[in-house]
Design a protein around this nucleic acid. Sequence first.
DNA 1: CTGTTAGCGCTTTCAG
DNA 2: CTGAAAGCGCTAACAG
Lengths: 354, 354
Amino acid sequence: MAVTIYDVARAAGVGISTVSRVLNENANVSAQTQRKVLEAIESLGYKPNIMARNLSRAPMRSVGVVLSYLTNPFQVAVLQGIEQTLAQAEVDLIIFSLESQDRRKTLLESLSEGRRSDGLIVVSFSLTPTSIARFQRYNIPVVVTDNKDKQLPSVFVDNVYGGYWATQHLLSLGHRRIAYLQDHFKAPNGPGGNWPGLDRRRGYIQALLEAGLDVDLKLIHEGDGHTRQRGYEAAATLLARPNPPTAIFAASDMLALGVLEYARSQRISVPEDLAVIGFDDIELASFANLTTVRQPMQLMGSEAARLILSLMNGELLTKRQCQLPLELVIRHSCGADQSIHNETKIHTLPLERR
Amino acid sequence: MAVTIYDVARAAGVGISTVSRVLNENANVSAQTQRKVLEAIESLGYKPNIMARNLSRAPMRSVGVVLSYLTNPFQVAVLQGIEQTLAQAEVDLIIFSLESQDRRKTLLESLSEGRRSDGLIVVSFSLTPTSIARFQRYNIPVVVTDNKDKQLPSVFVDNVYGGYWATQHLLSLGHRRIAYLQDHFKAPNGPGGNWPGLDRRRGYIQALLEAGLDVDLKLIHEGDGHTRQRGYEAAATLLARPNPPTAIFAASDMLALGVLEYARSQRISVPEDLAVIGFDDIELASFANLTTVRQPMQLMGSEAARLILSLMNGELLTKRQCQLPLELVIRHSCGADQSIHNETKIHTLPLERR
DNA sequence: CTGTTAGCGCTTTCAG
DNA sequence: CTGAAAGCGCTAACAG
């Protein structure tokens, strides 16, 4: 196979333990021998095998992070939180991106075979029951973020309330025709699954109904992914309708930014002619002066990491579900120093609902 | 130590290979036995050891990516490129973030001990000579991106030309007092090091001199990190000077966006009262209609990944330095459909210089 | 269907 | 200072 420590030892005319010593910079090797070994390593192009190495040493742990898009600011922010916490615990972070559709199946397969990491954090994604069963069999802990899971430990926000809150805010501004933009209506994937977009939509509808308004299905727009492009297109479609909306609630800031772009291109002034509210509060939102419902993205990541870490340590968790607070960040584009005019309201406890 | 396959076998009253079979979903196990084994696994809380597993299987390879900030859009874009290429090759990607200053030393130490990955991609960072030597000893290939390295294979752009180009553009617009903003002047780290910011500055100076202008050192501003906040502060400082600049060249889009924000807060209109040009062309730039010098960030990542992959395969590369083309993206904020007015010029070959 | 027996490549006592 | 030998935990023939 590959060049091993034995080959090096033979070539250098020494024992394997000597080679090991050189590799590990152990002091007890004569300069003479050291040189010979180094030369052998060089000429043979020997590379140590990490796996073998770690097998005979203190075990190194690693957790895998499965995310669908490294291009999505929300997911990246969560990743940051995860990274920080994991790094402190000296646990490696392995990234598994599901960017390309065809890789999804095979990747999840191989993951669940437990080949790669001792724990898994799933970001904005739902596992199939078979997948879950497999992880269970291997006793590999899995934590879900951005999605409340009935069986798996998860970290999430109250998306129904978030949607309700955003809509409520628009209503309080006097809007009556409010559109809702989300990525896709795809049904929850697996048992107990519930997608953020669907939940926010529920809250949106609830707010409308409470205000005594009808729900106009034509104002609910389904896109495909959280990109500015989709937001732009959706805004174009919605505003071209007869009796167009006066306000748009986008399920993510990226979509909202697309809406903003469209408005700009059409010289529609925001918020005078069109009110826009987003979701997430990614960095771009503050630059764009976008009012939004903030999710504590980094915290979401670090909480998930904390969870997986204790699970990996075999701790039996009583509290496996972790709901994080939302914030309503109201931004005003006017004013010299915008930040002074920002308002922030925090929602911690879940709204009584049913 | 931990629960092993032997413990499970004993508890289930079977041989270890049977346990292994159950774990690997091998068909040749009676339902009876399977159940017993599964129960033993469950009650003992057995978890397979990945290292041991991979040692007796086809070797899994992994490459580590060292980056300083997961919060930096440029670095994330490079990471995306890396991820894509690595995923295709079925090589794991391990992230090592240097976010916190104190982790830098220890992390790089342990990395160079070759404990974790079979190859390393360093993003926007320079290794110390001792570090490099150690990697050499272990024959662990290292590829550098965003920085031309004399000894290590690297992927980069012609930053001198980029700076020259950006300044040239501003000059062609009639500006004579052009400021330059970069993160820090820190000297190149290690031999052969050359930092992008310094190179762009060189190009900036060259362009000014060629135009017969004096270089006003007061117009060269040093910040600390590529954040909007720093750009904002820098703009405030620069524009408060007597005889302020009429144009600002920022070494990154993030800095440029901060400048834009400051301008907005002061009701300074861009580009009429202040011209701004950035560097990188992160996604935000197009939203903000920022004229900028585009780096092919994703490509940078995938090229680096390709390099490390062939290096890991033991291929002897003749071409270890890979220079990627730059683009000048000129954006006009006026016009209904901004994209129509965008101009793009591509620079592929390095400018004759020196 | 199931147990026994070799290794995978490396680190680490333990004797020289 | 250096070599021999015993594992690290698991998989994969090989014989039943």
